[in-house]
Amino acid sequence: MASSRFTAQHVTRRTLLGATGLAGAAAALAACGGGNDGGGASNGGGSGTMMRLALNQTETHPSYIALDNFGTALEESTGGAWGIDVFPNETLGAQQETLQMASNGSVEMSIVSGTQLENLNPDFLTLNMPGAFDNIDKQMQILQDPAIVGELFASLEESQNITVIGGFTQGERSAYSTVGPIMTPADLNGQKMRVQESDLHLAMAAALGATGTPLAYGEVYTGLNSGVIDAAENNEISYFTQAHYEVAPYYSFTRHLVGTDYLIINTETLNSMSEEDRAAFDEGWATAVQEHTGLWAEQTEQAVADAEADGAAFNEVDADAFQEALAALPEEFLTEESQTALWDAIRGAQG
């Protein structure tokens, strides 16, 4: 089996590795100064505020590279007043845990999937809906339009002490299986498919022909290898970097969803920035989004080539059959006026 060919040159000097679970998270936080006067961000020996950012991806993933560069740029642009220390590989815990940690301030920032946010505000499921975005370019346009998403991104500030800064693409998510190629929803009949913990994603799996099985991201490889699940759905990069292709070698381009990962920050931390530092933060984030999107395109192409070289098989599907199977989901799930208004704005912006 060939090893990953993605470059490791961006691996940060600041990464802490080896800690796992909540016990590991506590050790990692203590190691970087998390014990300062109530567990907030490390003051770096008085030289500035180093915010901890929890991430569930590897050091070669576009999210890590873009966020690590974001942190370096923020230190430079604020004269060392603010920085970001990125913790990859679920070092600080799974997304559900780090979401709570960002809320209470024990970790300042985290990348979380849309399903985590829809559990706090159901309006987020509008952006998580199959068919919401035509493609990645349209997705990025909408996620950076405050007229469409501004109110939604601020909706958790009062109740959860969390501000949503924006989103990275998860790419076009497709299905992959241990059983064989998937051409139509009928090919998934009887297969247990890993989905994120969400009523929408459970319904999506059923519409795709499978039985939805919620499972933590870090448990997917073992689940596929042991037969706990027969299939999963994700983008090509995660498929390769998490080595899922080793145990589920059939990747079918269902392209049923353009997913989003959101950057969240503790609202009190964000509000403590000066006007100048907040402007630098926002500028740095905009640059990170642009870098991430470019890296995503490059690494998606490379991931497919590398997985194929290691024995995975990719195939196109009957796209019309999958679109038809999923067509009823918006009407079923978008039942509130706020959701339908947001849906109309998202679809209207794509012309």
Score class of each variant (00 low, 15 high):
302 Q>S: 11
262 Y>I: 05
315 N>S: 15
291 E>F: 02
139 Q>T: 08
177 S>C: 11
110 S>G: 09
67 L>E: 04
224 L>A: 00
255 R>M: 10
179 V>Y: 09
138 K>L: 10
329 L>F: 08
286 A>K: 15
30 A>M: 12
76 E>T: 14
42 S>K: 02
247 V>P: 02
128 N>M: 15
169 T>H: 00
313 A>S: 13
235 N>L: 07
302 Q>I: 04
310 D>Y: 02
101 M>C: 10
281 F>R: 00
156 L>C: 00
245 Y>W: 13
164 V>N: 01
292 H>S: 05
300 T>L: 03
327 A>E: 14
30 A>H: 12
22 L>C: 08
312 A>Y: 01
213 T>C: 09
182 I>E: 05
195 V>S: 05
328 A>H: 15
235 N>E: 14
202 L>G: 04
4 S>R: 04
66 A>W: 03
102 A>M: 10
290 Q>N: 10
199 D>N: 12
79 G>I: 07
136 I>P: 03
297 A>F: 08
92 L>A: 06
179 V>W: 09
37 D>C: 11
230 D>F: 04
93 G>Y: 03
34 G>P: 04
228 V>Q: 14
251 Y>D: 05
57 Q>N: 14
58 T>I: 09
88 P>C: 07
338 S>T: 14
70 F>R: 00
311 G>W: 06
198 S>I: 01
107 V>R: 03
42 S>V: 04
200 L>T: 01
80 G>F: 04
292 H>D: 03
223 G>F: 00
94 A>E: 15
199 D>W: 02
128 N>F: 08
267 T>Y: 02
141 Q>A: 15
50 M>Y: 07
35 G>R: 10
88 P>T: 04
170 Q>N: 14
196 Q>F: 11
216 A>N: 13
106 S>K: 09
36 N>F: 11
301 E>S: 10
149 V>S: 00
311 G>C: 06
77 S>I: 04
144 Q>K: 13
34 G>L: 08
57 Q>V: 13
270 L>E: 09
214 P>C: 06
320 D>F: 09
171 G>C: 07
164 V>H: 02
25 A>E: 07
85 D>R: 11
85 D>M: 09
292 H>W: 02
62 P>I: 03
349 A>G: 15
18 G>E: 06
222 T>M: 12
218 G>A: 13
7 T>N: 11
215 L>V: 14
198 S>T: 06
250 Y>L: 08
172 E>C: 10
347 R>W: 11
335 T>V: 11
44 G>M: 04
99 L>T: 10
224 L>H: 02
161 N>L: 06
144 Q>F: 03
55 L>A: 03
5 R>D: 10
169 T>K: 00
52 R>N: 08
120 L>E: 10
33 G>M: 04
216 A>Y: 10
323 Q>S: 15
193 M>R: 05
220 V>G: 00
115 T>W: 13
139 Q>I: 05
94 A>F: 12
55 L>I: 09
6 F>I: 04
293 T>S: 11
117 L>W: 05
43 N>Y: 08
109 M>L: 15
125 L>I: 09
121 N>P: 06
48 G>K: 03
346 I>P: 01
60 T>G: 00
269 T>K: 14
171 G>F: 03
1 M>C: 08
129 M>N: 01
